[in-house]
Write a protein that binds this DNA or RNA. Structure first.
Lengths: 402, 402
DNA sequence: CGTTTATATATAGGCTCTAAATTTAGAATC
DNA sequence: GATTCTAAATTTAGAGCCTATATATAAACG
């Protein structure tokens, strides 16, 4: 997404109104319903200004006025509410295995949801097509039209720079990039904001996950392969080419050596144990064609299987080294583990924290994501909402009130 | 430095003037001398506004008006210049071995400089005293009074959070912290802005070093021990407790294992080689009491000594792993090597880059600092200047014009 | 039914900016 | 040396925005 070539913003009296309107709107998005007096206290503005701004926002469609409140003595107060149905945003997770689309109102409440497997997809255009179909399905089930959609956030497993450009040598992704955002915008009319999936996961955790009041944060996606999103003082890091949070360095970490994630290690080590005749384990009974899944290994460990438990201990030790590196180099307050096997990873926490204490006397807190597999799409919604809040006063709402 | 408890900044017409005055002042600090028309073009403001703002700034002492220009036809233009002698700032480097103080005018030109060894210093109060003495000496040689000093930046080798608080378990530093900033402010009257030394080095490189137009940057102080400053999109990272950039993780890196810097490794391995009777090296002739310095090892390598060259190759390999980790995890455009042995480190660059290419196909550029041992104090000056620019319109200048 | 109370609305005044008209200071021209 | 030209400064008028103050309004209370 190239930014529009705005002229150098010169401070004019008119932009005061913009600033103050933005402040009022910001308060209203975070609170459910506010009286005029409430807004005066929350914003520090004068009553006259607050009402003028609210009248503006109402005529723009961003705010609706409710019936006057009749709580106590005195003249009933005007009551204002953010018009969460002024428009909608989409959160799109374009994963390797699956594409997920969330339709959300402007307060971030999910209105509809659709998912589609990406198995067997070969070409960029096939992939774009899948995303398109999923979007259409989600919008239909939400009974929302393209005209009502103000923006869409979309997460991909590739480096994305601050302007939303995918930057990767891989030819497939390059062509995918060239196609996706433009094509979706052509088809539907709304802007598409690309971002790295781990970064969106970080936005998601910061917004509605375990990191709600934490501004210095690392989110570790630890499913098939490790990936991370880095947040410092509430801001996502990107690096010069969108590569911030890439985990290539794990190859250099003693006792880690690769970027394989928790699910992959569990699966591979479990399958290896099954193949080894000398090993005695209940995993062998669960295996199909000699292969076990990560979930089976986790379950077997929970049921007391020693071999499976050993695998988990190994994973905890490896993960502890990853967390220790990120925790000491970035000094986040919290590290959140997310991805496919997040809930199962909860069992790893005690072991992991014990290892962690060996590497640093001031370890970060470690938590397991509770957003499940929505972690990226929820973050994508937040990403789109950020855009909308930023540009609220420039956007035309399709559904102006009379 | 605790921030003053500012009221929520409400957007009033008066603050428009602040914004525009800040914009004009910003242009003037970066350009030497500007005409009214020049400022109109640079700021996008109207002539009326530009002149009103300039008149304000002149009466505040931030700007001086020169004789009208008489370049071409037409009415001569008023010419404005940033008053770089409206005040001064200090850049203080409180190193383990040495304290350095730079006195700088508001354009960042060094006016005077003083340094003092910290050898044999034991207590926090002794250390504070040394800093105080060095400051007094520097101010005297610059013929600048305390009243003219608007702020001082100070770098320490400890974690410092965004508010300038030293955060470290070590009792010595904790007491030092409690004393230093307050005591200097008590004695001299100007505010002291503490910051981590590697972070200041990063500011220095970004301002006047190798990273002048680079906003995604890592600076690696690699003298006695590795330390790093991290900048993403022009902003320094701090982490939740000021620990961002700490290099504890090096213990986990295969083939590194500790945070020893280039100088230390060179010295120790050189001395070890001298002690080993079986080794044939010219270092032995240079050694005193069987010990060699890092500088001697670098010189011997340059003179063709095979053993010294081997040591440097080892150092290059180790450093490459450090750079590879930071380069892939952060994705800076540039990594700058600085610290005591920076110039000597230039000899390592080819080897280092060759190793680097093995770890990543998109390595960052690597450069060697040319700021020498002023890297931290120059950054401290920049840190103080940032504060002054931020608060320019709130600060009282001691030397108002008539 | 008037008083009390909290809030909304209206009015006056002061900043700030822009835009357009007017003045000014020097150079070029006659 | 007076006139013209030019680019810039200065002045004036106008509009937007905010604050502060005064006035009006809609309920509850006695």
């Amino acid at each position: 997404m190239a930014k529009p070539p705005t002229t150098p913003p010169t401070a004019t009296p008119t932009m005061l109104r913009r600033v103050n309107a933005g402040k009022v709107l910001g308060v209203l998005t975070r609170a459910r319903v506010m009286t005029g007096t409430g807004l005066i206290e929350a914003t520090g503005l004068t009553r006259a200004t607050v009402h003028a701004v609210c009248n503006d926002l109402i005529s723009m469609g961003w705010v609706v006025e409710l019936d006057p409140g009749r709580t106590s003595v005195g003249r009933p107060s005007r009551r204002f509410e953010f018009n969460s149905h002024a428009g909608y945003v989409l959160g799109i997770d374009i994963g390797a295995a699956k594409t997920t689309v969330l339709v959300s109102d402007l307060r971030g409440e999910t209105v509809a949801k659709a998912g589609r497997s990406a198995a067997g997809v070969k070409t960029p255009s096939e992939r774009t097509e899948i995303v398109h179909e999923t979007v259409v399905e989600a919008l239909a089930s939400a009974e929302v039209s393209d005209a009502q959609v103000l923006a869409a956030g979309a997460g991909v497993a590739a480096p994305v720079d601050r302007d939303g450009n995918i930057l990767v040598d891989d030819e497939f992704w390059r062509r995918f990039d060239a196609g996706l955002a433009q094509r979706l915008t052509e088809l539907h009319g709304w802007p598409v904001l690309l971002e790295n999936d781990a970064n969106l996961a970080t936005l998601g955790e910061h917004w509605r996950g375990e990191a709600r009041n934490v501004d210095d944060l690392v989110v570790l996606l630890a499913g098939e392969r490790f990936g991370s999103g880095l947040m410092d003082s509430g801001r996502l890091l990107h690096g010069s080419r969108g590569g911030a949070g890439e985990m290539v360095f794990l190859k250099l970490i003693e006792g880690v050596g690769d970027t394989h994630g928790i699910a992959r290690i569990a699966r591979e080590n479990g399958t290896a144990a099954v193949a080894d005749e000398a090993v005695h384990t209940s995993l062998r009974d669960l295996a199909t064609d000699g292969e076990v899944t990560a979930e089976q290994v986790f379950r077997a460990a929970a049921d007391g299987d020693k071999v499976a438990q050993g695998i988990l201990q190994d994973i905890a030790a490896r993960t502890a080294r990853v967390v220790a590196t990120l925790g000491t180099l970035f000094n986040p307050e919290l590290v959140v583990l997310g991805g496919a096997v997040a809930e199962a990873a909860a069992a790893l926490l005690p072991d992991l924290e014990a290892h962690l204490a060996r590497y640093t006397s001031t370890p970060p807190r470690v938590a397991v994501s509770s957003l499940g597999d929505a972690i990226v799409s929820v973050g994508a919604v937040r990403h789109a909402l950020n855009y909308v809040e930023q540009h609220a006063l420039d956007l035309e709402l399709s559904c102006r009130p009379v």
